[in-house]
Each structure stands twice: as structure tokens, then as C-alpha cells.
Amino acid sequence: MAARTAVRPGQLSAWFTTPAILLGLLFTLGPIVVITSFSFMSQPEAGSGVVMEFSLASYQHFLFQEDFYGQMYFDPRYLNAFGLSLWQAVGTTALSVGIGFPVSIWMATKPPKTQNMLVLLVTIPFWTNLLVRTYAWILFFSGDGTANTVLSWFGIEPQQLLYNSWSTLVALVYTFVPFAILPMYSALAGFDFRLAEAAYDLGAKKLDVVRKVLWPAVSGGVLSAVALCFVPAFGSYIQPVLLGGGKVLMVGNLIADQYGSARNWPFGAALSVIILVLTLVGAWALLAWAKRSAQTVSLAV
């Protein structure tokens, strides 16, 4: 018999799968490899780009600046941008999950047909470009926009609602609510309500049922929602730039600046790597927790 490995039904031979796997690796690992190597390289004398010369300057630059006399001193400027991003991300996550949770419970208790309809509605924002949707918020908050029109009905003078942390937060929450709803909804929809009946039957009161049976079953979904909102909200770019007017320095626009006006590619790369490492640590902690408590946490929609 020829030495041929049998292909099971539903399984493709290596000839078909290898190119796809290679392409997948290229697109996922490729950018990370490039960014990580850039972050350890040096800035050219003039212009943008990198020169192949090992350097830790970019990481140092994150916390320390060189003063006029060549002395290093601690500069919290970039750390503050991280702090601000952190707060925006925490706020965005809390609000998105807070709004999304009751909505997902409401969705999961509808008849199946209605549920499909509602899921479709939740995903409608994904059909249009984020940039367009964010511009819509600018129109909404602008001097003669809807928000100010409504305020004028109550006799309130037009306000400057744009270009601050609050308008940024609104746009971020708007963007991430669907990301919060979907994993929580799917956890709730997958919840077997017969388990709740079994708990009642065994003498559990309503609160016991929620704490002992419902929560363990859906907490994984809530955590997925937290992860799915927090990570991209932390590195968000469009909202702080458009609705924050670029005045609020957050990691997203800080990084973008390094590749644009500041022309410091290695530093931009280093900032990205720092975010990546922080995110990985967070995700690892989340998964470790999930494993310990036998939860399914999915880090993707």
C-alpha cells in the first residue's frame, strides 16, 4: 500500500490548508514582528522611518526625557496619555457593559425569531464605516446640531459640546455597546433556563438562582464583553481625534502622531509594543481566571 495518509471527510489535505495557514500567520504575526523590531531600532537623523541600529532609546523615551544639558529626567507626559486612555477605556467599558447587560437579557428572553431580528439590528452599525458614524456624532454635537437644538427647547444657550473627553466618551460608548451586547447575549441565549427551574425545584429562591446558577453561566460572556470593549477602547484613535479634537492626548492619537508629524517611528512602535504587552498580560490574567473557575471567555465576537 502506498504511504498516503487518509483524509477524513470534512478534512482537507495539507496542500489546501498550508497556504491559508501561512497567509494567516503572515497577517497576524507579520505586523507584530515588524513593529517589535522597529521599536528596538533607531530614529534616522532626518525624515521618518527607521535605521537598523539596535537601541532602547524608544522605551526610555516613554518615561524619561533628555533636558537641555543632556540630563535624563522623568517626564510623565506619555504616562498621562496612558492614564487618560485607561480612564476612557474603563468608563467606556463600564457604560457599554452596563447598558448592554439589560439589553441582552431582554433580547435573550424574546421568542427565537425576534431574537434573530434583534441581533441583526445590533449589528447594523457594523455595516457602515466607523469614520462616517463618528462624523455623525460631530454633526449631532455641533453648534447648531441636534443636541443644541434640543437644549434650546429648554431655553438653554447653545453649548460647546464638542472636542472634550465627554463627547469622546459618548462616541466610544456608542461604538462599543454592540461589542458588549453580542457576547453577553450569546451567553444568555445559551443559558438553559431549565437549570433555573431545577434550582427552584431544589429549594433555591430567585436571588439564589441568579447568584448560583445564572451568573456562573453568563459571567464568561460578561468578561468577554469587558475584554472586547476595553482593549480596543484603550487604543481607540478615531473618536479622540474627531470628537476630542486632538486636544486630549490619548495613546491612539499619540501613536498616530509618531508616524505623522512627530516622525518618530521607533517610538510609535515602542508605544504599540507596550500596549500589546499590557493587553497580553490582561488577557492572560483573564484566561487564567476563566480556567480556574471553568468559564468560557471568548476574546472575539
Partner: peptide, 18 residues
């Protein structure tokens, strides 16, 4: 249900998976 001296073995068993 929780005050009835009656318990059920469900068709689906309904064991708590966690």
C-alpha cells in the same frame, strides 16, 4: 416550587454544568 416537599428528576437531567 421551593416550598413544596416535592423534587423532580428532569428529562434533560438539568445538572448544573459548573
Amino acid at each position: 416550587p421551593h416550598r413544596r416537599p416535592v423534587n423532580t428528576v428532569f428529562q434533560s437531567y438539568a445538572l448544573f454544568p459548573h
